[in-house]
């Protein structure tokens, strides 16, 4: 079991307390490709941020790869994020003044890997994603799909066990969305990386093997979707 959540609660308190996660119990096996769906404001991003150790939770237990993720120091949390988790965001979150290859290298910088090695590895990953020609371009010179592929390369470069993607296709057109989902699917199948995708597009969720519905801060239905028949729409052609 890669991820084990037991009765996770999270309340935001900005003047007026807002109980967002009301006891989440969830297990995700190594190598799974799952999506989390739910209405806007249902707590999807909150849950994913907790899974990514970007945010903390109030009560409950979160076990990641057999380790209890609770009351970690910022340094430990940074180290776990660096070695175990890759992030893919809706808005890409590339550093604007760094070129594609520099962005991809950055996680390795924080592992203390020498510059030359870093560069070689980053180029290798960019090549894998068909971005060799864009290596020395800045983010504002690239299309959304290209930027998201750079972000995926950055997420992959530390060979993480888990990739967390919050609306990875949210800022992309449907054709590019398909490409990105195909890419994630391939990574899941070929490299056996566990991938969790938050989305509110049924077409995107349908590409994953399991769909977790979240409603009002608790887990609702969990749909097995190995056959990818949860949705018969026409978007993902």
């Amino acid at each position: 079991m890669l991820i084990e959540l037991k009765d996770i609660n999270k309340t935001y308190d900005n003047g007026q307390p807002l109980h967002v996660l009301k006891g989440i119990d969830l297990s995700i096996e190594r190598g799974e490709f799952v999506s989390i769906m739910g209405a806007s404001g249902s707590g999807k991003s909150t849950l994913l941020n907790i899974l990514g150790i970007l945010d903390n939770y109030d009560t409950g237990e979160y076990w990641l790869d057999g380790k209890l993720i609770k009351d970690l120091s910022e340094k430990q949390a940074a180290d776990y994020r660096n070695r175990m988790i890759g992030f893919v965001f809706q808005s890409f979150n590339l550093i604007s003044f760094k070129t594609a290859v520099e962005n991809v290298e950055l996680p390795l910088y924080y592992q203390g890997i020498p510059r030359k090695k870093r560069h070689e590895m980053a180029m290798e990953y960019l090549e894998k994603l068909g971005l060799t020609d864009w290596a020395s371009h800045f983010p504002n010179e690239m299309s959304g799909g290209q930027m998201q592929r750079v972000a995926i390369a950055r997420a992959l470069i530390t060979r993480p066990q888990l990739i967390l993607a919050d609306e990875p296709t949210g800022a992309l057109d449907s054709k590019t969305s398909v490409e990105v989902m195909q890419l994630l699917k391939r990574l899941n199948q070929e490299e056996n990386i566990t991938i969790i995708v938050v989305t509110h597009e049924s077409g995107v969720a349908n590409e994953t093997d399991k769909i977790i519905h979240i409603k009002d801060g608790i887990i609702g239905e969990i749909e097995e979707n190995k056959a990818h028949t949860a949705w018969d729409g026409t978007m993902m052609k």
Binding site: E74, A78, D79, R81, N82, F87, I95, L106, Q111
Partner: peptide, 15 residues
């Protein structure tokens, strides 16, 4: 925001 990105991909506060 940039520091947020750096932290997400593994920069510690000391870094």
């Amino acid at each position: 925001h940039e520091f947020g990105i750096r932290k997400a991909i593994g920069a510690s506060p000391a870094e």
